[in-house]
Amino acid sequence: MKDLDKGFQADENHEPKENARRDFLKKSSLLTAVALTPGVAVKAAENHLDEKVAAAFEKMPVNIIVNGKPHKLSIEPRVTLLDLLREQLHLTGTKKGCDYGQCGACTVHVDGQRVNSCLTLAMTVDGKKVTSIEGLAKGDELHPMQEAFIKHDGFQCGYCTPGQIMSAVACIREGHANSETEIREYMSGNICRCGAYPNIVNAIQEVKNGGQQV
């Protein structure tokens, strides 16, 4: 704790020197452990991620609610939401396709809005609610969109499907599923290499026309 305190008590007006910072980072295992411990320092970090906190920690605290379950985690700032979901929370339903925001396989909802989790730093989701494909079903009861994808054969290999379904749900919620043309336009961020597009459109139209709660 001594080292940590020292880190936080760095001169108000100066960042710790680069060398000092590197030395400090070597003690990252200790810091990580500390980061998970409630305390004044961690509270400060959560409320105000300022220069001193960033300089002291290799890993930083982040609070995320995933599929209704709160998680208090410690991560490197370069971890994307996609990698956090898959590698740390073991929610592997969300898929890594291109990893550059071009295919939509990684689509999840953040505070109800669909986004590409591969281009979202997990740190930026602090305090927000994330819904992944695992969060759609209610126990054994599939979400209407999942049912419709099965019924209409909205996939072949299935790799893009979690992203397609998350996008499809958002497409209806946003009010952009009023015609085939509109659905195709507003589903354009999700690529399906197998070419299941007509069946995906059918699935979305059925859910939309069925008027079910999505």
Binding site: L49, D50, A54, M60, R78, M123
Partner: peptide, 15 residues
């Protein structure tokens, strides 16, 4: 991706 520091200032002045 190379490591970087991440900060989230609360005020325009800090930014």
């Amino acid at each position: 991706m190379k490591q970087f520091q991440y900060i989230r200032p609360a005020t325009q002045q800090s930014v």
